[in-house]
Amino acid sequence: MGTRDCKHISAMASPSIGEAGRTGEWRTSRPVIDHSRCIPVRKNKPSCFLCWLYCPEAVIKRDIPIQIDLTYCKGCGICAEECPSGAITMVAENDYVER
C-alpha cells in the first residue's frame, strides 16, 4: 500500500473494494428479490439483467439467479424501480425479517 516495486514510498493509491467502508451500512431500505418472478430465472437463460445494467454500485452479479452484494449496496432502489417484472422490492431495514 503506497509503496512501489522499488520499495520507495509513493503517493500512489492502490485499488481496494470498500474504499469508503462498508457502504451497505448507509442503507435505509434493502432490495429483496423474488427469484420466481425474475425473468432470467423464469426463462432459465441470460436475458433482461436491467438491474445489473443500471446498478450504480456494480454490486449486482449478472448470474442466474442474480446476486446482490448487500455489504456494499447503498439501497438506492434503482434496481427495484427498473425491474420490468417487479421481482425486486425495497424493504425498510427496520421492517426486514430474515427468512
Binding site: I17, G18, G21, P56, K74
Partner: peptide
C-alpha cells in the same frame, strides 16, 4: 469497485 464514496 463496490463500496466507493459516491452518493446512493
Amino acid at each position: 469497485l463496490p463500496g466507493n464514496r459516491t452518493c446512493a
